[in-house]
Design a protein around this nucleic acid. Structure first.
Lengths: 202, 202
DNA sequence: GTCTATAAATAGATAGAC
DNA sequence: GTCTATCTATTTATAGAC
């Protein structure tokens, strides 16, 4: 559906069409498969057209990353609310939300915090990243048992776990088990909860 | 050191020099930065030379992946032995070994189990992958508390965690903390132990 | 086994017309 | 704002000489 809808856009919307198509492209081939030329091809415009809206490839990617960060933060907030009142479950829900988001949109921490985009000092992206980090830190702080790890390290652990599950999913490591995206998200959530609980002082 | 040593190799060793240089290249730019042309450049041979030893890029990568899998399995065995007798600590040590290995060699599960290499049906690679999986399953089985998750899912969790830590490390997410590779490996190990312990039936 | 030369893709990016 | 045309760089891969 989206492909045609994008191609049949009316004039003046190339910029947002580029962003939308970028997510499609990322979902299909990851950062490695991302190219401005391919984007132009899919939108039936010349390869020069995107450069009227973005200085170069990195600026386009940064805009995508900023949008991804905002959407991911929102998705995590929703998952947290749906998770109930247990602070550990609420924090762990972010891992599941992350897996689901990457599977649906193709952009995760690798895009949002890409080293190749840091030189841009893109304000919107930096701010969106900070908001995401802040949400996670807050949830970690509440889930953190006394005497346990610092909240920052707890965030690091859960991010690593979530990103790992998303990578395994994307890379097809889990494909033999024929899991749905929701299955993988549930596993990531369960693992995150175990991780936080296991960190408690015996 | 290695660069010059490789460039000054005597004749008849291009094949192994290609493998060695591949690891260097992967460590610097990951799978995305891997190219046969760049490899040839570094070894001061023509871009055609590598194709006398490998049918194409994927066959070269598969040979790299098979070697990586064997080395990683050995590194994990060493780490397990050094970890003592507690089954959870022994299993968790594989996460630290993985992080250290990826940091040193640049090739991890993403290369070893790359979807793009599966069509080759490379026997050596498949066998090396099986051996790695088998080691992890065995350790998981011994670390697994009764009533806990299946060993396969435990392996999945620890692999995801380890791969996530390695990605965070490689991507520079942890760079603000100025951690050494050993620091990151220690954190991954600790997190893996917490994960396994937290999975126990309360 | 290695080289030179070359072909065919593909990507990023710009100039200038409309 | 978009197009056509073009440039430059890079990569994978092959043919044929030595």
């Amino acid at each position: 559906m989206t492909g045609d809808a994008i191609r049949r856009r009316s004039r003046g919307t190339l910029r947002s069409a580029l962003l939308a198509a970028s997510f499609e492209l990322l979902r299909e081939g990851g950062l490695a498969g991302f190219s401005v030329a391919e984007l132009a091809r899919r939108l039936d415009v010349s390869t020069a057209a995107p450069y009227r809206h973005f200085r170069d490839r990195d600026e386009l990617l940064a805009a995508v990353a900023a949008q991804a960060a905002a959407e991911l933060t929102a998705a995590m907030r929703d998952a947290v609310e749906a998770a109930g009142s247990d602070p550990v479950d609420r924090f762990a829900a972010t891992a599941g939300a992350y897996v689901r988001f990457v599977s649906a949109r193709g952009a995760g921490f690798d895009v949002i915090f890409a080293a190749e985009l840091r030189h841009l000092r893109n304000g919107a992206l930096a701010e969106a990243g900070r908001e995401l980090t802040s949400l996670l830190l807050d949830l970690a702080q509440r889930a953190r048992p006394a005497e346990s790890l610092e909240a920052l390290q707890l965030v690091e652990q859960v991010i690593a776990l979530a990103h790992g599950y998303a990578s395994l999913d994307t890379g097809g490591f889990l494909s033999s088990a024929r899991l749905t995206d929701d299955d993988v998200a549930a596993r990531a959530t369960r693992a995150a909860a175990a991780l936080v609980r296991g960190g408690q002082p015996a």
